[in-house]
């Protein structure tokens, strides 16, 4: 199993996401869909912290196996009210300013959980699922 870690701050998040993806690519060749799904999940989780958290810092851990990709994010701030945001419905066409980041994560992942405080997120992307959805 491959593990990649990153310490995210308001000033380095974009470069750090790119660096984590680049490090992963040194170990394994991800398909275009896997790469995009991983980038999108990372981007949505991290941008949520940067936009909404009281302390704009987070730790990220990515585990990669042949079956799945697991992303864990720990927000150093107060977390967020994920219960009010989590929805299975696609983004409303009539209310375009409502967020749809969690919806996208749910669509790409097989498993999405938060702790009670909304400070720790765990997302599992089953690699076969991504390719299946793509077909």
């Amino acid at each position: 199993m491959i593990k990649i870690t990153g310490k995210i701050t308001e000033n380095n998040y974009s470069k750090n996401i790119a660096a984590m993806l680049e490090r992963l690519n040194q170990y394994i060749v991800l398909t275009e869909m896997e790469q995009y799904a991983l980038q999108l999940v990372l981007w949505e989780l991290i941008s949520n912290v940067i936009r909404h958290s009281t302390i704009k810092k987070a730790d990220v851990l990515i585990h990669l196996s042949t079956e799945d990709i697991t992303i864990e994010l720990i927000d150093h701030g107060n977390g967020f009210d994920w219960r009010s945001q989590i929805t299975k419905a696609p983004p409303s066409l009539l209310a375009p300013h409502e967020g749809c980041g969690l919806f996208l994560i749910q669509q790409l992942a097989t498993h999405v959980t938060f702790d009670d405080a909304g400070k720790k997120a765990r997302v599992i992307i089953q690699r076969a699922k991504i390719e299946e959805e793509f077909r």
Binding site: P91, P96, H97, G99, C100, G101, F103, L104
Partner: peptide, 10 residues
């Protein structure tokens, strides 16, 4: 990302 999706919808 989701911000881009919202941009297209709005």
């Amino acid at each position: 990302d989701s911000s881009g999706v919202r941009l297209f919808i709005s």
